[in-house]
Computed example of a mutant assay.
Amino acid sequence: MLPLDPQADTGRRAWVACPKCDDSRGCETCEQRRTCSDHWRYLLSNNGSLLHLQCPSCTHIWTHETGFGATRSRWERIINGLGRP
Rank of each mutant, 00 (worst) to 15 (best):
P85R: 11
D5H: 12
T29Q: 02
C55K: 07
E28H: 08
R13W: 02
Q32P: 07
L4R: 08
H60Y: 06
G83C: 05
T35W: 15
T59V: 15
Q32F: 03
S45A: 13
D38M: 14
T63Y: 15
S45C: 15
L53M: 09
G11C: 00
E31M: 03
P56A: 09
C21M: 09
R84V: 11
S73Y: 01
K20F: 10
T59H: 15
G81H: 07
E76C: 05
W15V: 01
P85H: 04
L53I: 14
T63Q: 13
K20Y: 03
G48Y: 14
N46R: 10
R25I: 08
W75D: 13
P3D: 14
G83R: 00
I78D: 07
K20R: 09
I79S: 11
G69S: 04
D38I: 12
E65D: 11
K20M: 12
M1P: 00
T59C: 15
R13C: 05
W15A: 00
I79K: 10
T59M: 10
R74W: 11
D9C: 03
G26P: 13
S49Y: 14
T10V: 12
R34C: 12
A70R: 09
T29G: 03
E28A: 11
G26A: 02
P85E: 09
T29N: 03
Y42I: 04
T66E: 04
R74G: 06
N46W: 05
D23H: 14
A14N: 10
P6S: 07
W15L: 02
C27H: 05
C30T: 06
C30M: 11
T10S: 07
S45Y: 07
P85D: 10
G69L: 11
L2D: 09
Q54E: 05
W15H: 00
T35P: 01
I78H: 06
H52A: 05
C58H: 11
R84C: 07
P3C: 10
T59L: 13
W62C: 01
I61Y: 05
L44A: 03
P85N: 09
R13M: 03
Y42P: 04
S73K: 10
D22V: 13
I78M: 14
F68C: 06
G83H: 06
S24A: 15
N46G: 04
L82M: 07
I79G: 07
K20T: 10
C30N: 03
P19A: 10
S24G: 03
H60S: 06
S49M: 08
H60E: 11
